[in-house]
């Protein structure tokens, strides 16, 4: 028996919009810790890790650890039928091959049930080691989205370099080249407008912009994004989900042959 009641149902809608273009089918895992997912894109270049902690739900019942295979496009279709202010409850019964999403309007005058078929998915679960990153950049998520979009009109890849000068996003393409440098800026009115750069060592890595642009679909989840870089590791692009957890995207760098 599974029953997860999320008062801020819009969070789940935003999570699906953030990941559904990257991953087609995925297993959602439910345990005492929370509702989580780990999945790679079909070419194994990017990985998404989602956690919605149990404490973030108004009611959280999960009698035993369970893994439920879902087609994210179908799940998104169903969640789009929930209003932005609706309370969403996810319900499942042991051994059932379906899951039910219940949408309640804030005034309780409309209650809808959507039943979705589950699927069997063979997925590999990867161990993500704790790592010391060479540089961690925290910046407004809308600014990061803007930079990725702007650069992708010039080139296909972005070089992200962190030095003591700041963080530089560079690209090059048939029509020319572009460089965008952000310096640390903490003298802003609101904390969510700050750019904070922690650097242990200078680092420079190249990534496919197509994936970065896909990650920025998580922008509505958080005003800030954290980009963690190390020369030996995939970059981590993290959007915190207020009070509940996070969606983290890992992207393997492009490597000189």
């Amino acid at each position: 028996m599974l029953e997860l009641r999320l008062v801020q149902g819009s969070l789940l809608k935003k999570v699906l919009e953030a990941i559904k273009d990257l991953v087609t089918d995925a297993n959602f895992d439910c345990s005492a810790t929370g509702f989580s997912l780990q999945a790679m894109d079909s070419s194994h270049v990017a990985l998404v890790a989602l956690l919605l902690r149990s404490e973030g739900f108004e009611h959280y019942r999960c009698d035993r650890n369970i893994s439920m295979g879902m087609n994210l496009n179908n799940m998104s279709k169903m969640l789009k039928c929930a209003g932005n202010d609706d309370i969403i409850t996810i319900k499942g019964d042991d051994g059932s091959d379906t899951i039910t999403f219940m949408f309640e309007s804030p005034t309780q005058d409309k209650i809808a049930d959507f039943e979705m078929k589950l699927m069997d998915i063979d997925s590999e679960h990867l161990g993500i080691p704790e790592a010391e990153y060479h540089a961690i950049v925290r910046m407004p998520s809308a600014e990061f989205s803007r930079i990725c979009k702007d650069l992708s009109s010039i080139g296909d890849t972005v070089v992200i370099s962190v030095t003591k000068e700041g963080v530089k996003f560079s690209t090059r393409g048939d029509i020319g080249a572009a460089n965008i440098v952000l310096r640390q800026n903490t003298t802003v009115d609101k904390p969510e407008e700050a750019t904070i750069i922690e650097m242990n060592e200078p680092v420079s890595l190249t990534f496919a912009l197509r994936y970065m642009n896909s990650f920025t679909k998580a922008t509505p989840l958080s005003s800030m994004v954290t980009i963690s870089l190390s020369s030996e590791l995939p970059v981590v692009v993290e959007y915190k989900i207020a009070e509940m957890g996070y969606v983290r995207f890992y992207l393997a760098p492009k490597i000189e042959e």
Binding site: M40, H44, V45, A46, L47, E124, H125, L126, G127, I128, P129, T157, T206, A208, L233, P234, Y250, A252, P253, K254, I255, E256, E257
Partner: peptide
């Protein structure tokens, strides 16, 4: 051009 890396070469299956 640099070659695209693969997640599976960084993170191992558990």
């Amino acid at each position: 051009d640099p070659k695209q890396g693969n997640i599976l070469s960084f993170f191992k299956q558990v």
